[in-house]
Amino acid sequence: MTRVALLTLGTFLLLAASPWIGLTDHPDAAPFIVWQLRVPRLLMALLVGLVLGTTGAVFQALFRNPLATPSTTGTTAGATLGALAVLVLAPGLAHPLALAGGAFSGAIVLSLGVTALAMAHGRSIHDILLAGVALTLGAGALTMGLQATADMSATFRAVQWSLGSLSTVGYRDVLWFTLPALLVWLLMIRRSRALDALLLGEAQAHGVGVDPVKLRTELLWVGSLGVACAVAITGPIAFVGLVVPHLVRRLAPGRRKGFIAWSGLSAGAFLALADLLARHVLPGRELPVGVMTAAIGAPFLVALVLRKTP
């Protein structure tokens, strides 16, 4: 875990200096840009990354599936559908809070529908995974149906929203999101020992004194709620929760101590770095951060998978 920690802390140092990049052209506007735009945006990226990375690491262990993501419980698909429903059915409601509210409601309805299954004894974790995939596809179909019937401007806004963006966040969002983000992180760290026992199978975990049904119910609810909050503010940001836990695992193979905690922290660093690049890589234009996370994460992960593990 030392390599992960050094890499993450190094990135944090770089990020701490980042709000002052390229400000020499506009000395008058500098304090406003730094303190009102860039700092809250950086903080939000760190917090959203924290939730996505932690939840991704936990869900992959819980589902014992390397493809599980924070969206496996239908959270993102529900949020996208909810946001689009607001844009299409109530186009007059231009307020950003209406959009966030629609996204949050959709995320909660779908993910809680899926996670409710987890409470049943005798229900396999793969059933829950399958229900998550099925509901995600179903919500996706409804989303496309809505798009087909909607006018161009609503569809355009919905597509833009679904790319994920940190460009509109302010201190109010940061304040509102800090508590849930830290709670998700701390609670999941507390459960990491029980989660490690689950790696050898649910029966093995039962044998050493873990209640797998209670554990998965709790972690699925907490993770889905945290991700629903994040998605409501920034839109869905793909790839962070999938890729970062795998990167951490590859850098510290077989190690579980600190895995959850560092997956969250390094995902925060990763997302903030991706957002920084998304703003500066094209002169005068900003890329959606989700494009950047996939553009960095995908080749990096492929390279690590292809490299023989020591």
């Binding site: 262990a61 050898l200 199978g201 093995q204 050493v208 873990v210 695992r249 193979p253 077989g254 190690r255």
Partner: peptide, 24 residues
Amino acid sequence: AWLPQHTDTSESLRVDEAMRTARF
């Protein structure tokens, strides 16, 4: 203490960490 018939070994796990889980 129970040793079930099947053990999941899909995840990379060091021996000492596997031992730790039995100290839960």
